[in-house]
Amino acid sequence: IIQGYGLTESSGSVASTVGPEESKAYGSVGKLASHLQAKIVDPSTGEALGPGQRGELWVRGPLVMKGYVGDDKATAETVDSEGWLKTGDLCYFNEDGFLYIVDRLKELIKYKGYQVPPAELEHILQSHPEIADAAVIGYPDEDAGQLPMAFIVRQPGSNLTRQQVIDYVAKHVAPYKKVRRVAFVNAIPKSPAGKILRRELVQQALSMGASKL
């Protein structure tokens, strides 16, 4: 399987796997394209991080966009004065230079000061034999900030319960990453490209009310 990663703003590939050996780096999108520079940056401090440390991926190179036409504010927020493009993706490089995508920064769930990647929980949920599809959002909570909430599409004939879903995830993650709420749905709303429409799920969760979760 050949993996790759890029953005519209990077005008093409940022990283990809080349050949069968690189494709064995399971879960990675490959190594950085030769025409680019990259660094992993702590979103809070702007400090560059080392291998294995998670942060925002910044890239720079001749094909990176100059900016958004007619939108100086968005350009200033996305590309710094030295030409570094802030991708908005939470990533890390391993010791061998392979890039791993964890999640979108703006989609991280903020639970009691911890950051919980929805994609990590979704991967675990989708490994359950009675779950056909799953999506995770941050449900607003006055005390915790946000609670990890799972939307579950059960396999036909399944009688999977909310507590079984919660217990299954809890076996695989640290306590702060546990799913706190569960809702069963017929389908996960997605864009034509297959991207989960999390805003729709948040609105759906709020409209359900606490009594139904």
Rank of each mutant, 00 (worst) to 15 (best):
M65V: 07
D167V: 01
P175K: 05
Y5C: 06
Q37M: 11
E47C: 01
L121Q: 06
L160R: 12
S158H: 09
T17D: 13
A119L: 13
F98S: 02
E21M: 11
A132D: 14
A183C: 09
D141Y: 06
G46H: 07
Y168W: 13
P156K: 10
N94A: 01
W84K: 12
K177L: 07
S81G: 01
I2A: 14
G97S: 05
Y5A: 06
Y92Q: 00
A193C: 03
Q37W: 11
G4S: 15
M65R: 09
Y92D: 00
E47Q: 15
R154E: 14
K31C: 08
C91Y: 05
R60G: 03
L201N: 13
V79H: 06
P51W: 00
Y168V: 01
I1P: 10
F151G: 12
K106A: 12
A74S: 13
I166D: 11
F93M: 00
F151W: 10
Q164S: 11
G4H: 05
D143Y: 15
G97R: 07
S127F: 04
K195C: 06
I196D: 02
G50A: 03
L121N: 05
Y114G: 01
A135N: 08
I40W: 03
L105D: 00
Q155S: 15
Q203D: 15
A25W: 03
L99C: 02
I188P: 06
R104E: 08
A150N: 04
L57H: 11
I137D: 11
Y111I: 02
L206V: 08
Y5K: 10
V179R: 04
E142G: 06
E120V: 12
D71H: 08
V116F: 05
V202S: 11
S34I: 09
E120I: 07
S10D: 05
S16G: 09
G194N: 13
H35I: 02
A76R: 15
I124T: 07
A144T: 09
D141E: 06
Y26M: 04
A174E: 10
A119V: 08
S10A: 15
Q3T: 15
K66N: 09
M149Q: 12
H123R: 14
A150C: 07
G138A: 08
K24Q: 14
T17F: 12
R104C: 05
S44D: 05
P51R: 00
R181P: 03
V182Y: 09
K86L: 06
P140A: 03
Q155L: 13
E130W: 13
G55N: 10
A174G: 00
S207I: 01
L49D: 01
N94G: 02
Q115A: 13
G61D: 03
D72R: 05
I2V: 14
L49N: 01
Q115R: 13
P51H: 02
D103T: 02
I2M: 14
L90D: 11
S10L: 03
A38L: 08
E120R: 13
S158N: 07
T17E: 13
R199T: 06
Q115L: 14
K110S: 04
A74K: 15
S81C: 00
K177G: 03
K66T: 07
D42W: 07
D72K: 04
K106D: 14
V64H: 02
G46N: 12
A144H: 14
I166N: 11
